[in-house]
Design a protein around this nucleic acid. Structure first.
Length: 688
DNA sequence: GTAGGGTTAG
């Protein structure tokens, strides 16, 4: 479009240009040797496509070099301000005349190179100057486009701030809006992107669908995606009547997948197919993978089949995703089957395949089979790595056979695999979970000796295991040490420390941790608020606890059932049954389903408040709502009966518990025993 | 179609 607006080149101007020597790099190069702008940008080699060709067939301009050095040199020396002297400078108009023939596309290219050149602010200010200059001399039309190019390039080279400043100089048009929003999203500055989108909408312009793609991609990239947010974005797209292209639909599917709402993701997958479009394989695989992580094997299989229906052959990744589902479910036979299947179809297993298989055998306690897989890996030239071994340790840790850790270490050495930071983190966690704090600290030493710098996770794990064993002083020392060594605490670190201070009832300490988080620009997350509600609630500071819950809602985070459980539980332990009930109702009105945890806590509240009738009413409503009472439910009910001295009703509850299929644990048996004891005592005192 | 995995906080 711009090329059409360019004045046609004439023979006279061409001669003029040749006469001015601008096409002779040797001359200009010598005169600009010391210019700060001498870079790849100052002179451009052009292909035939880039130049305007004359009608006469023999193009005088093909393969010529336009040398922009003189212009750029001039512009860098004349950074324009409002009452610019350059206007009256004769060189200015002479230069303008000499570049009259440069095609628009070339100006665009020059501008792009200049704006995205990695060097200094010099080139940025020169690019502004260039746009102004072109504008002033009517050399290149569509200034809107020029600004867009500039903003786009700046955004691509992470100079978003400059792009933003630039946009302030002009009235924004739909094109510049879109380019700017795109630049913000690419640079992960979504706050600015959203502000601009709203502003744009306010001015009656429609946003480009590309912007939504870029925003979703940025959210996914930074793990900031959640399904509510995505739902809101989708509503916006609908109300803006945005065209949903395949790319955008793929991005939405990925977004819902990553935010854990795989059901919604599958709806959109269906939408893609319904439009007769083909989803990207990587999109489909990511759904299978998520279904796999959730252990939803049948659905994973079904989506896997859809790849084949589309005429595509599943590759390693797709197989791995299904394999993950089987492993998650502990389904060894299906796991072995799918691996055979992939080999039969000529798809070679990779590191992930083997890792998953080893995981499966490890979980089944089949260490020998896991070793065979290790051998197979070697045979197939897939090198086992630290990851595989850390998975083995995790499976031993979770099955209580953590001492096998030493054996795993030996095996690892035999394979010539060096433990990495994450492996050591798993080791520290394992030692910590089994209260071997000295061993855990030993690993820290070992890491340092091997030149592996401990990271956030290392420190968090160490700090937390010391808190859990009650050594809050050592935990605090480690918290200080971490910072002295230049490791910045993250949100998890603060959550651990807040919990620690809370347990010690060091409330000023808690507040100062929250302040410190803010200075680091860390926002409290759901876990932070839950921790706060828990520690305040546990020490009877209910005002503080409820205030935290309100703060969380105000900050836009959705309360979870865990946070309500913490609150209900806190009230329950002090026998504040009305408050507990109230918290329970709040939970319901927030649309959260009550779990056994919440209901058991509520029963406990009535129990502590000697309201046994209400406690049993909860049991009834559990049964009516298809919630299976568990051993804790029945034990708490027995406790409630004992509290109101209805000892003779306890054996009946115990019996019902067994009848309903609950296995009594030590606490349940203890309740029955103490009820029987009281009954005997009562009998004795009556006979006496 | 060049990406997917492990460890920490309620």
């Amino acid at each position: 479009m711009n090329a059409l607006l360019l004045p046609p080149p004439s023979a006279t101007t061409a001669r003029f240009l040749r006469g001015l020597n601008f096409s002779q790099p040797s001359l200009s190069a010598s005169s600009y040797k010391h210019s700060p702008l001498r870079s790849s940008v100052t002179s451009l080699s052009l292909s035939e496509d880039d130049v305007v060709t004359e009608d006469d067939g023999v193009s005088p301009y093909s393969h010529r070099r336009y040398d922009f050095a003189p212009l750029l040199q001039f512009l860098s020396n004349h950074i324009p301000d409002d009452n610019d002297l350059a206007y009256s400078d004769p060189t200015d108009s002479k230069l303008a005349e000499s570049y009259r023939l440069v095609p628009a596309s070339l100006w665009h290219y020059l501008l792009k190179s200049l704006a995205s050149s990695p060097s200094s602010s010099t080139s940025i200010s020169t690019s502004y100057a260039l746009v102004d200059w072109l504008h002033r001399h009517n050399l290149c039309f569509s200034y809107e486009l020029l600004y867009s190019i500039l903003i786009h390039s700046l955004g691509h080279s992470e100079m978003l701030y400059e792009a933003f400043l630039l946009s302030q100089k002009q009235t924004l048009t739909p094109l510049t809006y879109n380019v700017l929003i795109g630049a913000c999203a690419r640079n992960d500055d979504l706050e600015k992107a959203v502000i601009l989108m709203n502003k744009m909408r306010g001015e009656g312009y429609q946003s480009d669908f590309m912007n939504y793609s870029l925003i979703i991609q940025s959210l996914v990239r930074n793990n900031q995606i959640d399904s509510n947010l995505l739902e809101k974005l989708y509503e916006e797209m609908i109300s803006d009547a945005i065209e949903l292209d395949v790319q955008l639909l793929n991005d939405i599917v990925i977004g819902f997948t990553k935010s854990g709402d795989v059901d919604r993701a599958m709806q959109f997958l269906g939408m893609i197919q319904g439009y007769g479009l083909t989803p990207k394989t990587s999109t489909v695989v990511s759904i299978i993978s998520e279904l796999g992580s959730l252990g939803r094997a049948e659905e994973a299989e079904a989506v896997f089949e859809e790849i084949k229906d589309g005429g595509l052959k599943p590759r390693t990744r797709a197989y791995n995703a299904v394999l993950k589902a089987y492993v998650k479910n502990g389904d060894l036979r299906d796991a072995e089957w799918i691996v055979n299947e992939m080999e039969r179809n000529g798809v070679s297993p990779d590191e992930h395949t083997y890792s998953l298989l080893i995981d499966a055998y490890g979980n089944a306690g089949r260490w020998e089979s896991a070793r065979i897989v290790l051998k197979e890996m070697e045979a197939n030239n897939v090198k086992p790595n630290s990851y595989v071994f850390s998975r083995i340790i995790v499976s031993y840790r979770d099955r209580g056979e953590w001492q096998r850790l030493f054996q795993v270490l030996k095996e690892m050495q035999k394979c010539g695999v060096k433990p990495d930071r994450q492996f050591y983190n798993v080791m520290i966690d394992t030692f910590g979970k089994y209260n071997c704090l000295d061993h855990a600290l030993g690993i820290l030493e070992r890491m340092r000796n091997e030149g592996i710098e401990p990271d956030n996770v290392t420190w968090n794990t160490l700090i937390d295991c010391h808190c859990k064993s009650g050594d809050h002083n050592k935990a605090e020392d480690l918290f200080d040490e971490m910072q002295q060594r230049g490791c910045l605490p993250c949100i998890a670190t603060y959550n651990i420390m807040i919990n620690s201070f809370g347990e010690q009832e060091r409330w000023e300490g808690v507040r100062s941790l929250l302040r410190k988080m803010k200075t680091q620009n860390l926002q409290p997350n759901v876990i932070t608020y839950t921790t706060l509600v828990d520690i305040y609630g546990q020490s009877g500071r209910f005002m503080d606890a409820t205030e935290c819950l309100e703060d969380m809602k105000a900050s836009g985070l959705k309360p979870t059932s865990t946070i309500y459980n913490a609150l209900i539980n806190a009230y329950a332990q002090r026998g504040l049954s009305d408050d507990a009930l109230n918290a329970f109702r709040m939970m319901r009105s927030d649309g959260l389903k009550p779990s056994n945890l919440a209901l058991n806590a509520l029963i406990n509240a009535f129990c502590e408040d000697r309201r046994d009738v209400e406690a049993f009413a909860i049991l009834r409503s559990m049964k009516e709502n298809d919630l299976k009472p568990d051993v804790v439910t029945y034990t708490t009910l027995m406790k409630a009966l004992i509290r109101v001295e209805k000892f003779d009703e306890v054996p009946g509850v115990y019996e019902e518990m067994i009848m309903s299929g609950c296995t009594p644990d030590r606490k349940a048996r203890a309740k029955l025993r103490s009820a029987l004891k009281y009954m005997r005592q009562r009998l004795k005192s009556q006979t006496l």
